[in-house]
Design a protein around this nucleic acid. Structure first.
Length: 604
DNA sequence: CTAGGGTTAG
């Protein structure tokens, strides 16, 4: 364990802090980090400026660097910039990122004379979005909120740049500092901000901003609605809201597109709303809508998640009949559907089928099957597929490595884990929070629980902040150690830390309780879930069954059984399988037979 | 031209 931790630490570069906003990274701290470097840079900077102020930019700087020369000739062609603007742009481009704030301060008066929109635009065109951001932040901090209100166009441009660069977390954070609602940005800018909130999980903020947009009387477009559908879909438990939005779109005469359809169907997939998905999909077709590959793919996901691979097959057939070309995602969904239903070899065989049809299997395809083999205890097959993918030139990604590490971790195969960590290093694949969580989870195995706290500490020292999922992992880790009391304590700690529990949290708790067969506490967890408005998942019911089985509570099993057979709980393949296992543990033959029949009639 | 969707890992 110690050696593994060493490898992991060695592998861990600090997490991607591509940018530190000015609010955190003040010029003072920069200087204190590199005192000698900065003082010299500062003085040359000052000289540079003095000379440049006297002469036109194009002749003032010696052209001893090619890149510098290229940048300058490019700047020269930016006609929307004034001469002063071009000069400023040149000076900013020459500064290292770390020195920019100090530079802005020193050039304060010159900066305020140029058109800032043009300057930002120039920086963006030269590929310096980070410098554009630093300039924007400097403007925000240095403009007097009373007198000079920020220009709408400056904000719109910054929004566009961050959106294009997919810097969603930076955008979400930045536009939390600025009261964007008080400005009148165009619908595209607001939509980009909505998207940034959506991608960073700030659903409540997105909804609030959406309401403000409506109040402002902005003409909401198809894209705005599509983003909001995604917000409600990702937030979960908002099907009514989705229906409401769809009605609103119809009444405004907005025609659905592929984004609308796939987003809505995916929302169904996340919550197992098979009926709603089917109804929506058939409704679309009856209106004459021709679904594309992405819409079919989301539909495949709905049934794949439910383990109904037969339905997945008919969807594929329909695609082929409608000349809708399947792509790698289509096949990946199909593979997932197979392995979820327990058909590992059929799933693995699809890899060859894909290649045969000219759709290259990718890292997702392999990871899906490797993970399935791992779960099924077929470690050798998983490892051989892992080697096969590398031989065929498919590069594993961090998900692949995490899947393999997770599998090895369950078996405590530390030497193989070390090999994998080395392989990650040689492939330049950085571990992520899940890698760390996998290591945490591994310590749930016998006698390693003393490492849990240490790994948690090291993880934080590598710059990975614990989040809701980390707490879920900690609860699971303690649960797997058989320390149910600690799991409950960790749950309380998570609440105090300000995280909202989710279904996974409750399932982790249920898992801890199931090990001990503490069905009374588990029942209380289910009650709490329902009070807080969460719908227990297939896993929750499965864990309850395990819990009752361990506690030899046949009556409890029967209660869930009844709900499964009377249609309150969807009789998925996995649940029926758990029913067989739970009943067999309690020697309840009738229950076993009934579940077995359920499987054979429904799924075979 | 400018804003948006679907697949994998704990």
């Amino acid at each position: 364990m110690d050696s593994l931790l060493q490898h992991l630490l060695h592998l861990s570069t600090p997490p991607n802090t591509t940018h530190k906003p000015m609010f955190i990274n003040s010029p003072q701290t920069n200087k204190s980090n590199f005192p000698s470097l900065h003082s010299s840079v500062d003085s040359t900077l000052q000289q540079h400026q003095d000379t440049q102020l006297q002469k036109p930019a194009s002749v003032s700087v010696p052209q001893f660097e090619n890149s510098k020369y290229e940048a300058q000739s490019q700047v020269g062609s930016l006609d929307f910039l004034s001469r002063k603007g071009k000069f400023m742009l040149n000076s900013i481009v020459e500064q290292p990122l770390s020195n920019l704030n100090a530079f802005f301060d020193s050039a304060k008066f010159e900066l305020l004379e140029v058109d800032l929109v043009s300057l930002l635009k120039g920086l963006d065109i030269l590929g310096n979005w980070e410098k554009a951001l630093l300039l924007f932040e400097w403007i925000v901090l240095n403009s007097n909120p009373e007198a000079t209100k920020l220009d709408n166009h400056v904000i719109e441009l910054m929004v566009r740049i961050l959106g294009r660069e997919s810097q969603h977390s930076i955008a979400a954070k930045l536009f939390d500092e600025i009261p964007v609602e008080e400005y009148s940005l165009d619908v595209r800018a607001y939509t980009t901000i909505l998207h940034a909130y959506s991608r960073t999980g700030k659903y409540e903020r997105a909804i609030a901003l959406f309401e403000t947009m409506k109040e402002k009387g902005l003409f909401l477009t198809l894209v705005t609605y599509n983003v909001m559908l995604d917000v409600f879909g990702k937030m979960g438990r908002s099907w009514d809201k989705i229906v409401e939005l769809l009605d609103e779109m119809r009444s405004k005469g907005l025609e659905f597109d592929e984004f609308t359809c796939s987003t809505v169907i995916s929302a169904c997939g996340r919550e197992g709303r098979l009926e709603e998905a089917t109804k929506f999909f058939t409704g679309l077709k009856s209106q004459g809508y021709v679904p594309g590959t992405v819409t079919y793919n989301s539909l495949l996901q709905v049934f794949g998640k439910a383990g109904i691979y037969s339905e997945s097959l008919s969807i594929l057939k329909e695609m082929e009949e409608n000349n809708c070309p399947p792509d790698s995602v289509t096949y990946n969904e199909l593979v997932a559907a197979y392995v979820r239903a327990g058909f590992y070899e059929e799933g693995a065989a699809l890899i060859d089928t894909m290649a045969h049809k000219g759709i290259m299997p990718n890292a997702v395809t392999y990871t899906t099957v490797i993970n399935a083999y791992g779960r099924a205890g077929k470690e050798e097959k998983a490892l051989s597929l892992f080697h096969q993918m590398k031989t065929l030139g498919c590069v594993p990604n961090v998900c692949t490595y995490n899947a393999v590490l997770g599998m090895l971790g369950k078996k405590s195969w530390s030497e193989e884990m070390t090999e994998i960590l080395c392989d990650m290093k040689s492939n330049g694949c950085a571990p992520n929070r899940i890698t760390w969580n996998t290591m945490l989870a591994m310590c749930g195995n016998n006698g390693m629980h003393k490492y849990v706290n240490r790994i948690f500490r090291e993880m934080k020292s590598c710059g990975f902040e614990p989040d809701r999922d980390t707490f879920n992992t900690l609860i699971s880790a303690y649960g797997r150690c058989g320390l149910g009391i600690d799991a409950t304590k960790m749950y309380e700690e998570m609440i105090t830390a300000g995280f909202t529990p989710c279904v996974a949290t409750y399932n982790a708790l249920l898992n801890a309780l199931a090990r001990r067969g503490d069905w009374k506490a588990a029942e209380a967890v289910i009650v709490d879930m329902k009070i807080k408005g969460f719908k227990p998942s297939e896993t929750s019911y499965s864990l309850m069954l395990h819990c009752y089985a361990k506690g030899r509570n046949v009556k409890g099993i029967e209660e869930i059984e009844n709900e499964v057979y009377d249609g309150h709980i969807f009789p998925s393949w996995i649940l029926l399988r758990t029913l067989i296992l739970a009943n067999s543990k309690c020697r309840a033959l009738t229950g076993m037979e009934r579940a077995f029949q359920g499987i054979t009639t429904e799924w075979v």
